[in-house]
Each structure stands twice: as C-alpha cells, then as structure tokens.
Computed example of a mutant assay.
Amino acid sequence: MAKSGSEKNTKNKAKHTKLMNRKKNKAREEKEARKAKLKELVEKMKQKK
C-alpha cells in the first residue's frame, strides 16, 4: 500500500541535483576560461616571434 502524506525525499533530491549541477557548470566554465586564456597567450607569443 502507498504511503499517505508528503513524499519522503523529493525536496532533498531536487536540492542536491541543483547544487551538483551548479558545481559542474562552475567547473566547466573555469576550464573553458583557462583554455581561452592559454589560447590567447599562445597567439600573443606567436605574434611576438
């Protein structure tokens, strides 16, 4: 028989998913920013030569 009342764990799961997505997005953005900076530096060094 199904439980009556509020569902057990859905709020925590939703919150956790939200936080984990935020963490993953932050890491991805930092990685892309680092990559862009390196690319820019490489281009700058090629210009100097």
Rank of each mutant, 00 (worst) to 15 (best):
H16W: 13
K13E: 01
L19A: 13
V42N: 06
H16K: 15
K8C: 03
T17S: 11
N21E: 14
A2V: 07
N25Y: 09
Q47F: 13
A33I: 03
E7F: 05
L38R: 13
G5N: 05
K26F: 11
S4I: 02
L41V: 07
R34H: 03
K48I: 09
K15S: 07
E7D: 10
E32C: 02
K49H: 15
K39H: 04
K35H: 00
Q47Y: 12
S4C: 06
A33E: 11
T17L: 15
K48Q: 14
L38V: 06
K13R: 06
R34I: 07
N9A: 07
A2K: 09
K48A: 11
M20T: 15
K46T: 13
M45C: 12
K23L: 12
K24Q: 08
A36G: 02
K46I: 10
E43W: 07
E32V: 02
G5Y: 01
K26V: 13
K49Q: 15
K11E: 02
R28P: 03
N25T: 12
K46W: 05
A33G: 01
S4P: 01
K49A: 13
K11A: 05
K13T: 01
L38T: 08
K46G: 12
T10I: 11
K18I: 09
K24W: 06
K11P: 00
V42F: 05
E29Y: 06
K44H: 10
R28H: 08
K44L: 13
R34W: 04
E43V: 12
R34C: 02
A36L: 03
K37D: 03
N9M: 08
A36W: 00
E32Y: 05
K11G: 03
R34M: 03
N21V: 04
E32A: 11
A2H: 10
T10S: 09
L38A: 09
M45Y: 15
K13C: 01
K26L: 13
K26A: 15
G5C: 04
K8P: 01
K49M: 15
K24E: 00
L38N: 14
K39L: 07
M20F: 03
K31H: 13
T10G: 00
R22T: 08
N21H: 12
M20G: 05
K37L: 04
K8W: 04
E43K: 14
K8Q: 04
E29H: 09
K15V: 07
T10F: 03
N9P: 01
K44D: 06
Q47W: 11
K26C: 10
A14H: 00
Q47N: 15
K23N: 12
K48R: 15
R22K: 14
A36I: 05
K24S: 10
K15F: 03
N12D: 04
S6P: 13
K49N: 15
R22I: 04
K35W: 00
R28S: 09
E30L: 10
